[in-house]
Amino acid sequence: MSQPASQTLPCTAGIGLRAPHYREVLETLPQLGWVEVHNENFFGGGAPLHTLLRVREHYPVSLHGVGMGLASTTPLDEAHLSELSKLCDVVQPAAVSEHLCWNSAGGWVVNDLLPFPYTREALAHVARRVEQVQERLGRQLLVENLSSYLSFSHSEMTEGEFLAELVRRTGCGILFDVENLYVNVRNLGVDAEAFIRDLPPDAVKEYHLAGYSVRDGCLVDTHDHPVYPEVWELYEYVLRQLGPRPTLIEWDSSIPALPVLMGEAAKAQQRLEACRAGR
């Protein structure tokens, strides 16, 4: 059995590790604080899991889910949960996260990260499911704020208020995706300062950064660009308000060469260090 590198995320910059870079990372072992992978790519076993376990010998690993559907109205998928639980047992991840979204309702499955109305009914529903997942995994789940292209007219609270109350009820942590917030500011007119003010600072355990695209005036969270200057600026503001946290560069489509990703991570690292030095 291989020895895991570490079971806590260091407060440094990491990258989302995707298939095109597995080999290069394992052969060159670049200096990286930590890596994050998508859970579903390692369900089952075989070559993907073997690769992840080798990565795990050198870097702390964060497991990031895209398929749990915390707000879905179909029952939590038992097979999915059981695969995640098995994966946690072998990987011993430094963090486990999921999105504040849904992907299944009324017999339909939509493989995407979809928004829902922030109502008291939804809050009770999501809180129950977060508790179920945390009980099953025996650990804290980090819940990530969502990027949205529309909003529901009957929402009773903001996403920030929803997340804060979810933390209070379940003890979950928050994965704060700064780019998602920026997308929501531009698309939906969300108040960034209020959102950040609403988050309980101690519950925020990790930041995400990525690039978006624009389609017909709508910012789409495509993870296929470098982080934009406006998002870096928002990130610096977040660092001043909430302090440094482990920060991830996500790139999922038109994935660039590893040095490009490393360069983005270095920019985040500089800002983390500047924040720590009080600059």
Binding site: A71, G106, L114, H125
Partner: peptide, 9 residues
């Protein structure tokens, strides 16, 4: 909630 999401889907 289920109605909202089903219509959205």
């Amino acid at each position: 909630l289920d109605d909202d999401l089903t219509r959205f889907a």
